[in-house]
Write a protein that binds this DNA or RNA. Structure first.
Lengths: 212, 212, 212, 212
DNA sequence: GATGAATGAGTCTTCATTCAT
DNA sequence: AATGAATGAAGACTCATTCAT
């Protein structure tokens, strides 16, 4: 009965912790982090108010854990899936697909991440910003690889390209969240990649600038 | 120094209102809307707490006014500048330039808009979402024009293209805000437009898909 | 140009003071003393907020003046009208008539007096309670006179009888105030006096009806 | 010592609620509803400010509960005691006795009811006015019964008679409250009833209502 | 005298957190 | 471990009063 920290059977304690966390995601998504009350989370999770503090250090820890855990898992999976790939274009595609997939699968999580991410990015200390920065760093690395190998144009800075890529994905998700239509987020993958690849493509072959 | 089309002699009352509003922008930018206290705004504006309520209906009104006023002026100016232009590419460039310019000029305003915009987009009903939606609608219209005239590819939906454009601009600003380097935001205009134009360009001439 | 304190031509200042006072009566009647704001009074009187303080010492003074002035005038008039009367029954009748008349003529005044009187009776210092006590003292005196001359029964204390008389009048006014029907308050004079006189009349042995 | 018809073992929660309520009665009695602060109530009840809100919806709810609960219990008890009586005079006597008894037993309650009742009667819509109106309706019913059976004169309206009865009782309590002498309120029962009965009695000489 | 913008002390209420059971 | 009643610090907002114009 393997019960180590990476064991697949979750202890009942871990299960409860996860249940609370998922509930918090839903409540935060519904009301917004600041507006939501700890009592709301406790009620929704069918536990007493005090119980939350047996599993988390407080409201902020709840939010931070959501960020941290989600990003950690995401990055871990991302690195795993990219390991077998060489082409930066392929890597970028995997990255975008995983991003859309992860949030497309859990709309509440997407809400929390999209809405509260900016507060967090700006105000929270390094932990989460670090995790988030790590993700952006991965995007940037791919871009730089692409630029080094000639798959992406070098006329723009890698940082800018990173912003374009991340911003585009981010806004597509935002738009998807605000729409009533809960259509599959992945349907945007191909056309989005099309635009991004074209936008980042080196331009020698195509003298596109002579737009009269 | 010719002032804008709406230049007036501001009454002393209007001046004070504007001073409070600008102070609120700075305080909200510094602490975040939810964390900032009305007392902070009052202190920073060198007025008594109660005075705030002579000019605004409350904390929320303060935030909403920031959004509403900024977006209104922005849209007005945007429509004014675009009136003389025909080419969708030119229009898009003006739009992006104005966006970068407006926020690049007032870093605190940029903070508030970037950080609090999402709460607002999601939770506030029509007023701001309406104004914001109007801006996004303008972007979309330009895209559609470009698609109709063959300047932009029609293989992707106008909505998606809108998201890519807005998301890219938005994230560049976000990145600029979080950087210590307060370099000129407008320096990103040309390379950004380069990527966007390429990304949205119709693809007939360039068989770009054969990425083996 | 006689301008002494008892002059009949009111100075413009006195007129304004009275106008404010009457307005305050109406506002207090409408909203209740505690709920009404000084600003409400000022607006209704078409003067600036600060102007109120040129004529009165503050909110409480406004209320106290309403009580004091009304009661003073009432008592003065009462004493004047009673001067020519001998029979305690007649005096009582005049007293009740004057009470109903005074409040029946100014419904707002009646509201304020009825509603706020108790707070005032209990909490305010001697001035008003004194004035009010003086009125009750007059009622009591009449009762005692009546008891001394055999017109009223002596089997109950004068204090109790005073309470019965005042309480009856008071509640009739209260009931009149809360009714939608603004019928003439004086219509209750005769039947009320009938009950009171019978109730206070000396008992068995005395065929009390042959009042000359 | 048999308790009332509604005697229960009170839960500790109900006990605390009652303790807070009784404390509120005392504080409101002492300072007046508008002047009293919630903090005063909390301190006096030896609980934290926030605790008040675990048992009541707010300040107004506290006052309303005082009214509602007191009147409900009073009316219930009144109806219970009157059930075995036939003679309107007896009923009236029970009613007056119960009224004097109830308030005579809890001077603070009497204060609150006497002082704040009028604000409430005028401003609060149905709840309290309804309960209060029900009590007045009971008085009126007794009067009407008495008039129908010839025990009371029919020359005055039942409404007027109700006012006289209620007003007299009410004012006696008021007078008792303002006196330093905390003598037994019930001592006034007999002489008061004497006056009321006489005042309401049909005139002997004129058997105007030949009710069988 | 009149104004009304400004003041800031005061109050109700909320809610994250604690701890006795 | 779990509970949930209790806590009390904190904050948005009000409004009687003042005073510079």
């Amino acid at each position: 009965m393997p019960e180590g920290p990476t064991a697949h059977k979750l202890t009942s304690k871990e299960q409860k912790r996860n249940r609370i966390l998922q509930t918090a995601i839903e409540v935060f998504a519904d009301k917004g982090y600041f507006t939501a009350r700890m009592t709301d989370v406790a009620h929704a999770a069918h536990v007493a108010d005090g119980t939350l503090y047996l599993y988390f250090d407080g409201k902020e820890d709840l939010l931070m854990t959501i960020f941290d855990q989600t990003l950690s898992q995401f990055i871990e999976r991302l690195e795993h899936e990219m390991r077998s790939l060489d082409d930066p274009v392929d890597k970028l595609r995997v990255m975008v697909r995983l991003h859309l997939e992860t949030l497309g699968r859990n709309r509440s999580l997407a809400h929390v991440l999209q809405i509260e991410t900016r507060h967090t990015r700006k105000f929270m200390s390094q932990l989460t910003r670090g995790k988030f920065g790590k993700y952006l760093g991965l995007v940037r690395t791919i871009i730089e690889e692409g630029q080094a190998t000639g798959r992406f144009k070098s006329s723009i800075s890698a940082g800018l390209a990173t912003n374009v890529v991340f911003g585009a994905v981010d806004e597509i998700i935002m738009s998807w969240l605000l729409a009533e239509d809960p259509s599959d987020l992945l349907r945007y993958l191909d056309p989005l990649m099309d635009v991004l690849i074209e936008g980042l493509a080196p331009c020698e072959t195509t003298p596109q600038i002579e737009v009269d």
